[in-house]
């Protein structure tokens, strides 16, 4: 299950960044990937649709809330947490 989440989130981010999933490193930030605020909102929408979850995120203050977007690894961790909480 955890691997599924990781694979799918990386796929979503790779699509936004116009990269191959294999080119995405866990320690990269959204900025490293060239994903801007619109790209981020679109990624979150894709994540919600893919996992049928609701992601708490307000574009006015991306750092606030419980959804950590500081790196690829952090996003995967946050999605795993939400999936466990909302689908468990």
């Amino acid at each position: 299950m955890a691997d599924d989440v990781k694979t799918k989130v990386i796929e979503i981010l790779a699509e936004q960044a116009v990269l191959e999933p294999g080119d995405i490193a866990m320690d990269q930030t959204l900025e490293d990937l060239g994903i801007d605020s619109l790209g981020l909102v679109e990624s979150i929408f894709a994540i919600e649709e893919a996992f049928d979850i609701s992601v708490p995120f307000n574009a006015n203050d991306p750092q606030a809330g419980d959804f950590d977007i500081s790196s690829v690894a952090a996003i995967i961790g946050a999605v795993e947490g939400l999936v466990a909480a909302q689908k468990g």
Binding site: V41, I44, F45, F57, N58, A59, N60, A64
Partner: peptide
């Protein structure tokens, strides 16, 4: 709602606590 720029509680322009 989809754009994630809306506040769920109030409109607080120019305030450090504004959230949409």
């Amino acid at each position: 709602e989809g754009l994630r720029v809306m506040s769920k509680d109030a409109c607080r322009p120019f305030s450090a606590t504004r959230n949409g």
